[in-house]
Every structure is written in C-alpha cells, then in structure tokens.
Design a protein around this nucleic acid. Sequence first.
DNA 1: CCGCAAAATGTAACCGTTTACATTCGAGGG
DNA 2: CCCTCGAATGTAAACGGTTACATTTTGCGG
Lengths: 375, 375
Amino acid sequence: MTSRPDVRSNPRPRNRAAAATIHDVAARAGVSVATVSRVLNGKELVREETSRHVRAAAKSLRYVPNVAARSLSIRRSQTIGIVLPDVHGEFFSEVIRGIDLAARAKGYHILVSGSHSDPSQMLNVVDTMRGRVDGLVVMAPDVTLAPLDELRARAMPVVLLNSATPNGDAITIDNYGGARAMMRHLHELGHTRIAFVRGPQHNADARERLRGYRHAMRGIAAVPNKALECSGDFTEESGFAAARRVAELKPRPTAVFAANDSMAVGVLASLTAAGVKVPEEMSVVGFDDIPIARYVNPALTTMRVDIAELGRCAFGLLLDAIGNPAAHAPRHDRVATTLVVRKSCGVPKLQPKQNAQPHRAARGRKRVPEKGEVS
Amino acid sequence: MTSRPDVRSNPRPRNRAAAATIHDVAARAGVSVATVSRVLNGKELVREETSRHVRAAAKSLRYVPNVAARSLSIRRSQTIGIVLPDVHGEFFSEVIRGIDLAARAKGYHILVSGSHSDPSQMLNVVDTMRGRVDGLVVMAPDVTLAPLDELRARAMPVVLLNSATPNGDAITIDNYGGARAMMRHLHELGHTRIAFVRGPQHNADARERLRGYRHAMRGIAAVPNKALECSGDFTEESGFAAARRVAELKPRPTAVFAANDSMAVGVLASLTAAGVKVPEEMSVVGFDDIPIARYVNPALTTMRVDIAELGRCAFGLLLDAIGNPAAHAPRHDRVATTLVVRKSCGVPKLQPKQNAQPHRAARGRKRVPEKGEVS
DNA sequence: CCGCAAAATGTAACCGTTTACATTCGAGGG
DNA sequence: CCCTCGAATGTAAACGGTTACATTTTGCGG
C-alpha cells in the first residue's frame, strides 16, 4: 500500500499517535520524499499540480517536519541562545523581549539560560548549547576578559551584550556619554556638589558610568573629592544605605547621582524616611529608566536606555554574523541614551561659598517632557 | 589510519574548524562508536581502561555531541517550551527564572516565546515548536477556553499557567483565597467601606480576585454596593485613573484594594498627587508583591505570590507528564499566597454611622514583619 | 585443555530530513 | 525517426548519534 519499502526489520511499537513523517506524506501524495521536501521548502521546480497534491496530503496528515532531523541535515537549528547572568528584574526581561521579537520576525527561536553567576558555569551552559543553536547572545557584565575570549574560541558566532569590550562583536550602552549628559544637566541646574552611588566594582556598565561622572566632576569642582563617591551594588538596598551616608556628609551635597535606577529608588526611600525633602533639599537622579522610575515619589529623573532596542540590535548583529561567517567584520555598536526629566531634581538652594546664581539655562529646562533630549 | 571506513564518496569541504564527531573520537581512541556512546552516556558496562581512553580522546578533540543527531535518535530534545502572552514586566521574568532554574537542574533547556496577544498566533508558535520541545508551559490568562483545548489536541504534554482552568494539567495562584485573606486583614483593621480596582475583564486571575473581594464584602456590608468597584486593566495608569474616581465617592471609602500591585502603585501616586494622605486618610493594598511594592511610599501592603515557585511547580508537573505520558493523571495545583503587611494601610478614622470601635485584633497586628502570615 | 557463560566491544540499522546525482519523459530540431 | 536537452521527479547517501544484536574476549570450573 505504501510506496515506501518498510526498511525497519522490526518496527518498534509506537505508543501513541505518532507524528506523520515526510514518508507518510509522500506515500499519500503518490510521490517521492524528495518531491515533498521540494514542495514544502518551495525552492525548486515542481509542477503546480503535484505541488497541490503534496500540500493536501501534508495538511490531511497534520504533517509538521521534524526539526531535529532537519537541522541535523542542514546543519542549522534556526535557534539562537541567550545567556544571561541572572534573569532578575525588568532589565533582563526587556532584553529577552527585544531579542524575541526580532528573532521571531526572522523565523528564529530563542533558547534562554539565565542565572549564571560564575564564568565556569556559564561556559558550561554554552557547551550544552553547542549544536542546539546557530549563535549566541551573551550578557556577562561582571565577567573579566579572559573567559570571554575563550568563549569565542568555541567557534560559534557570539555577540556580547554590555560586557567589558573585547575584540569581536559587541553591543553596549553608551554609559559614559549618558553619565556625562546627566552631569551636564545637573550642572546646568546649578549643582556643583554632586554625590555618586557606584555600581558593582567589576561591572562594566557601572565602571563606565563612574568614569563619566568623574570626568564631569573634574570640570565642575576644582579639587576632586573622593568622599562624594559611595559604594553600591545596583540593588535598592545598597542605594538605601548609601543615601544615609550621603546625607551626613559635612557640606551636604545638593544632588545624588545613582549609577542605576534601582539604587536611586533606594536613595529616594531612604531620604524620605530621614525627612530630607526631594527635590527641595536634595536632587536625585538615576540611570536606565526602568518602569518604576515614573511611579516613585517624586518621579525620578533618569537616563533612558531602550533595552528592547538593545536586544534587537544584538540579534541583528548576530544574524549578520551567522549569515556570512567568513566575510563578517566584527562590529562594536553603542546604543545611545536619552535624558528623561521628571520631578526628582531641582535647583539647589543658595549657600555660602557657592556660586550665588544657578546656571543660566537652569530655569528654562526644568520640565522637559518625557523622551526629552538625546544625550 | 582511521578505523572508520570513509563512507562519504565525496566529503564536502568543511569551511571551518569542523566540530569533532563521535566517529573522530572513536578513531582516536581506537574503539567503535558504540563504545564511545556507551562511555559518554555512562549507562552500560565498559572496561575502566577503555573508558579512560575514550574520555581522553573526547577531551583532546573538544568533542561535544551533536544534539540534533541525538534527539533525532532518541526522540527527545531535553527542551521544554515556554509560551507567554507578553514578556513584559517582572512577573514574566520571574516565571522564566523559576522554570529555568528547575529545568537546568534536570538537564533541560528552555525555549521561550513571548508576546502573543491573540490565540491564533499562539497556536502558530506552538506548531513551530513541535518536535523542538518535549513539552510546553503555556501561560494564557486572557484566553478563553476553546483554543486551549485545541492546544491539548497537539498531543504534547502541556501545563497551563494561570489560565482559565480547563481539564488537564494546570497551575494557578490561589487568587480567590488570597483576596479573601486580604479582605479579612482590612476588616480586622476596622475597614468596612472598601473599594476595589478590578483587573482586565477576561483575565482569569483578575476574575478570581474580584470573586474573593465580592464574597468577602457580602460578609462585611449588608447591602452590596457596586459603586465601590472600579474598572482597571492591571496597568499603573489604570490604577491612577481609578483612584481619582474612588476619592470622589460620596461616603469616601476608607480603603482601596487594587487587584494587582501595579495598579496599587498607580493608586498611591494618584492619591499623593491629590493630597490624600496614605494610610491616615485612606488605606491602599495590592496583590502580587512585585519588587517595587517595598519601595513605594508608603511601602505597600500586599499579598505575596511566589512567582518563581509557580514556575518551578509548572516544570515539575510537566516533567512528570513527560516522564510517563501514559500513566500520568492530570493535576491542577494551586499555589498559596502570603500576606505582607507594610505601611500603606492603617486603622480608619471614626466616622458617624460606623462601628465606633475598630475590630479587636487590629492594633496588635499592625506591624507584622516581612513574610508575615500565610493566608 | 576444553567449554561455556558473562563481559566487553563491534556492526549496522534506524531516527527523518535534505540534496547531489540519476532517471524518466516530452518536445523540438535535424 | 532519432537525438538532444531541459524539466520534473526519483534514488539513495549523507547528517551524527543510539542501540539491538552479533561477535569477540575473558575468566573459570570441570
């Protein structure tokens, strides 16, 4: 009955409604498997009538190609891997979202693996993804250079996200530029004594933001003052703690710049608890524009990072690398940030020994609407 | 030299450092592929010495098995799919996180696909995952029953997450019980005029929470008052708008119960903007205990849902279904919620026509620490 | 020293596709 | 009428593993 010779000497009993294979479709349509394959992939010449038959047979059998077989044959999985340090919080979910959207549009699937605190565990995961994916987007902001290079040796296209910039493909946020833009904004409002809450020591984003802050401070204060910098680790808790220290500094700073929004939220909560009025007595700004930033009280002024866009870029770059592994020239793209002015910072009160007048531009710029200016 | 007869008549030029195959390992170790397979899978008897040789060969060749071939052969992919409506926000990332952790521990990978607003698109995605995954966790809170049943017909283990409960495997939050527990808390504090901000009409979670609220209100107020219910859609914006309406109700409610935390955050922001003091003039509570809840001002009293646990349970159930597809009895598990008391609600002011005394228990319970009581 | 069971290993079929190459079939030109 | 050529289709060899079954070793009692 079937035109396919049953090669199996002793067919295993399939326990359940087995999925139809290409052979079943071929038999039903009265053609060879090659023809079925050609019809379904639509690349080669097939007579219109034959094509219809095949399509009908496939539909009636609810045929879905077996991807494992297919990818074994064509050596492609149409899947990319995403390796994250830890899928906590809104930042990571936005990254995934951005990549997912871009990938699906191109017919790609995404394999996600999060929660990799240490590099060895990460490399491990990368190995188990071997063969399962055509390329990787790896986010490892806390990892030092060496393991990342080893990762490249795995001979698979890899795009690094927000990691210490190595040679090879990478996408990063313009942290340095963003931090400077934020400092410019504060300075224009008249602030000169600006405290900074740092991020984790080994985090690439955190370092760049700190660098931007320091550079800007050199242009603002004659003598750099290390006392204005507090340590933090990107968590609300650490922001909370840092704010207490800031509030007790001798000449009290008029503004606090937290290296990310989570810490800024902590700072805000801490100051409120301590009875320090924001923005009247102290201005607070953050970085990232996570969704909550808009809903804390007062609403937080921050640098927006279009995280989904970050993911989208990463996928685009990866796709390019997968497309022509040979001719692909490694790129390092930087995505810009946007200043979003809300209510959490104002003009500092006049104080002795300070410039008596706030900077000229201050007044006019105070209430830039959402998505204000590009840094 | 190699013991493997080169069956390929005309080996394709491999463009790049091709990955070693099991044949290469076998050749290098001087054994057959079967032996290599046995060593690497560790199931069958192999002489210790042989085993060492094979392992050494594998390591020196940096051999990693090709998963496509493997899953073609054993008809398993060691991968599960996660289908989400939209990977926005902390809720979804926590779900992914929970599943990821559980899955990795069992050697499974996860294939994620988010952003499916409509059912047809979702079914589509499910089809493309066919063969790529051993089972699915599907989250479709807004979807009506019919498509979900069709999904089951796809003949693959499926666990539904927070969806309108059908027959088959499912995990849901105890929304009804949680809502009632929250109402009990408010009532014990002395509140009787309690407004409710509803979630999306077709959302299963939202409906259950509303049901819990209504049930509780029947026990509190003699005449049910629909005017106390405001519509909302789980977004901060809708909470913001709803709060304005609540504040203008004739006998003003003394408490607002928002069907989720995002809306509660909106409510808080709105009341603050309108000059209504929380909790002195009005108490506000939410549901979910998203991370921000702790950092808004005042900190939000809410029902905690252990979202990662939800994901973990879902994976466990799915694994069971994958394990014995035949003997598996469909289950419907419900995960409990926990009351977390913070600062956003207090004892209502005495008012005419009200019970003059707050409920007995109120005082003593006011400041239960984090992770207070199980509902 | 033989025989035999158990242990270790090898052989090759099979999983379901894709695709290079072979084959068939018609049509058109000489 | 034969030959050639191109279009349509078929055949079967990969792809890289797993595993049932066959074969070879090994250990040991008689």
